[in-house]
């Protein structure tokens, strides 16, 4: 028996108690409570009555929830690849030790420190009709102005633009950190072999950072499925619910309609969707790695 195992004591487990207590209090307990609430007819101020899976049946048969799921999946499907590709592009472009690139890293990361209120205020000024930046540009060229925040299709696009602008800093920084871990001798060897830039990118750079690409993708999938503030403040989910994400549906049901049971049921469904999406992504990537090996 190994020495370390023989010397282990139950009291060593105390080291994880601080983390475990926070984890149980702030994550496991609310999750369990949320599941319990989803099985009850309950409003914000109590009055619990067990009703089994009726809340789930109501959520799943609600066409507004179906529309919110569709909106969110489209949003994640477009915004996550955009964030990954754009973040990678910026990281590759700024992976230098010049003063200019350091300055630009700061510039591109700066938006990440803003609150959602400020971000949406800025993009509202860009997209609003009459005095908005886009409106001025359209008028300058004599084009018919577009109601970016109030036209079906454009509203979700506008929320996506604001989101990408806001969230691009983290993927860029993670990619930069990964790029700087790639051994320089790989590039020197490629240079000796007269490898083209494209070949260097596809044969050295991307394979070396594929675990970071997966990490960024999973983080962004989890984050973007939780889209809320931008949609609420920029479009209020409209027009005709075309930019209402799942979290906004949960908020409306729970806080505006006071139907906490139904809101909790929708939350559990969102939890499952995020879990499945992240697991699927992880499964695809590990399966590919195994196939490569």
């Amino acid at each position: 028996m190994a020495e370390s195992y023989r010397r282990s004591r139950w009291s060593n487990g105390l080291f994880v108690v601080p983390y475990l207590s926070v984890f149980l209090t702030l994550l496991v307990f609310p999750l369990g409570w949320g599941i319990w609430l989803s099985l009850n007819k309950v409003d914000l101020f109590g009055g619990e009555r067990f009703i089994g899976l009726k809340n789930y049946a109501r959520v799943l048969s609600d066409p507004i929830f179906g529309q919110a799921v569709k909106n969110t999946v489209i949003f994640v499907g477009v915004s996550v690849p955009t964030l990954v590709i754009l973040g990678l592009f910026l990281a590759l472009a700024l992976n230098k030790t010049t003063k200019g690139s350091s300055f630009l890293r700061g510039v591109f990361f700066a938006s990440s420190i803003l609150s959602v209120t400020i971000v949406t205020l800025i993009w509202r000024i860009v997209f609003i009709p009459n005095d908005g930046l886009m409106s001025l540009i359209f008028n300058y060229f004599g084009w018919q102005p577009i109601g970016f925040l109030s036209t079906q299709g454009w509203s979700l696009f506008s929320v996506g633009v604001a989101t990408v602008w806001w969230c691009i800093g983290l993927p860029m920084m993670l990619f930069l950190a990964a790029l700087q871990q790639i051994p320089k001798d790989l590039y020197e060897a490629a240079a000796l072999d007269n490898a083209t830039r494209w070949r260097v990118l596809t044969r050295i750079t991307l394979p070396s950072i594929k675990s970071t690409i997966m990490l960024v993708a999973v983080i962004q999938v989890v984050m973007q499925f939780q889209l809320f503030g931008q949609a609420q403040l920029m479009t209020n989910g409209g027009p005709a619910g075309s930019s209402r994400p799942i979290v906004m549906y949960i908020y409306e049901v729970g806080f505006l309609r006071w139907d906490i049971g139904m809101g909790a049921a929708a939350s559990q469904i969102l939890f499952l969707i995020i879990l499945c999406a992240a697991m699927l992504q992880y499964w695809i990537s590990t399966r590919k790695e195994e196939a490569d090996a």
Binding site: S150, Q152, G237, G238, P239, A240, E252, L256, W258
Partner: peptide, 22 residues
């Protein structure tokens, strides 16, 4: 009851019709 929630639902649907989405 829930006149604000009703207002939100009604306003959303009316807006959809007024702006040609429904």
């Amino acid at each position: 009851l829930r006149q604000f929630a009703i207002q939100d639902i009604l306003g959303e649907e009316l807006g959809s019709a007024v702006n040609g989405n429904k």
